[in-house]
Amino acid sequence: MEGVYRFADLNVAIRTRCRRLHDMCRDYRASGLPDIVISLTGADVEREREKAAVTARREGRFAAEYPYDYLETLAAYRALAEELPGHDGFLIHGSAVAADGEGYVFIAPSGTGKSTHARLWLEMLGSRAVMINDDKPLLRFMPSGPRVYGTPWDGKEHLSANMSAPLKAVCVLTRAKENTIRPLSPHEALAYLLRQIYRPAGKEAAEQTLTLIDRLDAGLYLLGCNMEPEAARVAYEGMKG
């Protein structure tokens, strides 16, 4: 099956064996000439199967046997992430929220509580806030500055919207008893960013990713937080400027 979708202001043509990806991406359907063409093979899907098994072993989890059509959706996103640096963009592992039209991305190792914290923002801000993508948003450097984009690869709870927002800040989340926030220098932020930004297997794309990180012009913060509603208030007040 083949379809053209619009992700991060790019037309992406995707060819797959199964239907699942096309159902998942239906809200992103587009027409016109593709900027990126992704044609998945059985080998791409096998590689995802191996990677999933390696990750499960590393995290000490039972390696589930995933169906082909699900692995195909993972392979498609990986292929897109490999192409994005060539279009001044990258995939970042984190939870992205739009608040009053501005994008905030929370990053932390899995299990720290990014999604929980993002949900506290949604509860606090009500209709002023939207979840852009709860797991793997895309970031692109546009002439007007960096923008964060929603996609349907959106984590366990499937929270995402087909929207984008100018990136206001990237916030590193850590668990703490008390809620505190402070700016991070670009030097301090780099180690956190490199862990959560997709590092392509292609050399040129990997180099371009570092060049983009060097250009990243957004607020950088370190949040120490608990899971109480006050955490969202401290974070929001500390970053909205």
Partner: peptide, 10 residues
């Protein structure tokens, strides 16, 4: 900065 390419573990 020197980093490994690819995402197979940091």
């Amino acid at each position: 900065v020197l980093v490994p390419i690819g995402d197979t573990g940091f």
